[in-house]
Design a protein around this nucleic acid. Sequence first.
RNA 1: GGUUGCGUAGCUCAACUGGAUAGAGCAGCUGCCUUCUAAGCAGCAGGUUCGGGGUUCGAGUCCCUGCGCAAUCACCA
Length: 594
Amino acid sequence: MLQQTIQEGISNAFKALYNYELEASNVGLQPTRKEFEGTYTFVVFPYLKVTKKKPEEAGSQIGDWLKENVAIIANYNVVKGFLNLELSSLSWSNALNDILSDSSYGEVEPNGEKVMVEFSSPNTNKPLHLGHLRNNFLGDSTARILAANGYEVKKVNLVNDRGIHICKSMLAYQKYGNNETPEAAGLKGDHLIGKYYVKFDQHYKDEIQQLVVEGVDPEIAKKEAPSIIEAQQMLQKWESGDEETVVLWEKMNGWVYEGFDKTYETMGIHFDTMYKESNTYLLGKELVEEGLEKGVFFKKENGSVWVDLTPEGMDEKLVLRADGTAVYMTQDMGTCDMKHKDFPFDKSVFVVGNEQDYHFKVLFAIMSKLGREYADGLYHLSYGMVDLPSGKMKSREGTVVDADDLLQEMFGTAEQHTKELGKIEGMDEQEANSLYQTLGLGALKYFLLKVDPKKRMLFNPQESIEFQGHTGPFIQYTHARISAILRRGSSLEIGTSFVPAQVGELSKREVELIYKISEYPNSLKEAAKDFSPAIIAQYVYDLAKEYNGFYQEVPIFNEENKDKVSFRIALSEVTAGLIRKSMMLLGIAVPERM
RNA sequence: GGUUGCGUAGCUCAACUGGAUAGAGCAGCUGCCUUCUAAGCAGCAGGUUCGGGGUUCGAGUCCCUGCGCAAUCACCA
């Protein structure tokens, strides 16, 4: 709103001064660097041909015109080609007043578009680890951000519950499990199954080693070790519906789901729909037929079906095996259609690691070639891996950071910090425990979401996650601090209504804080456009940081002018509200006290 | 080897999509709790933005090139 007024003002200035049509929405404004006076900066360099003047002169000329004709412009200064604009105190207090009275500030009207967000997508052969956490938090947060931008959002989870890797843990359990149950082992179901997945791998490796010692070529040994052959046989049994195998599969997967449910619950993550690959893996074969009929696919001599993507700058890609069985791509093609049938989306987001960039590039190209109109709305939210100081995480080698362990550690650390700081006075145990969860989860989610999703990131378990500085708890703390102010305000029966004209001159701190508040809609929009929770994370940190500066320097209750007191409480209230809203977009709760 | 992505302070990350003297946090050092929550605030120090060319009023950002790291290039998922 302030920004728009200035853009229009500059547009009008160009018309009046240079008889030049400059679209208001095309007027680029940037925040003024803090070493100069002003809030908004207009760069005149790009318009030198229009103004036909030196940058400084043009800047002054536009500045003069704005000061004369636009009420909110109180002053300006020109440094080289940069026109720095200072707004009047009144315009700022008016702006805050508008935001205060607008209960839907920062909310976007429904835009009538549907978007599906698929994320998490775990395998049912091992528990979730740190990499899954980034995936889950990203997907959940992105869904929230899109919803806040007016989309109708559906969150879905496509569980990889079948395949050779699932059979590996089944086989190991069958051989060495002695009918162990999660209860008997004292393990969550997913951890129990994970144990057998690792066990399979150990035996498998031993067998390979043995064969190599006997003189077998290592590559052949990998294919001929008894364990892997048994696993393959088991997969065939499963696919043919062998009862014993299916019963075992259902029992073990049931345990895993129970385990996953607990983890999702702890993380605060929920889905609208659960898809299972055991129900979807055969989909797509019809699409292969369709593609052959349309001439999009072609068959090779051995009967395998391919798509030629060389015109698109890619390779030929297999879409159906010679034996007629489906590959990953076949299934995903079918899933696309199924999802669109279930929920006719305008956009469909796949939250999947960047190791699958090529797969999705190919998938989207195929759907487009098949003439699916929704193909343009398919989007791979490709995120970078979470690396450890030792390198990549490998579940079979035990170098993973387990999700459940990490969550518990975070809660423990939160408890420790809270107690050390003496913050639990007056809290009952339930309240305290709930606070530890809020803080621990906030720290972890913020840590994983603050980094640009596209970039890979490093997690150092030794150094663990901080609770000070650029962290979730810092922002949560700021909210708790403001809550204390608001409690005091209401106990003194001081309201938030004020007369803007009576507030008087504002300090630099107050102006900057309102400016930051006014930027919220921009950040929200940008976060949706880029599918990037990191933009919200950065915004809310800046906002909290700005508030803390204000809090430190500007007294609230120790002020004579009644309107000024109410204005500052209102400023606090609006800030707290935006912190809460922003953190909700990241899936993070904020406490009233901490 | 081909393709794609990345390389910014000792460490972890920003930089509003081409704008001013590249900013935060952590780690280190110095101040600030008798006044609204010190999980805070203020300050000091820390940079050849991997190297080399180019494009222009202006480049961490765009183009070319070299180096390094990662992913991918399966009738695996």
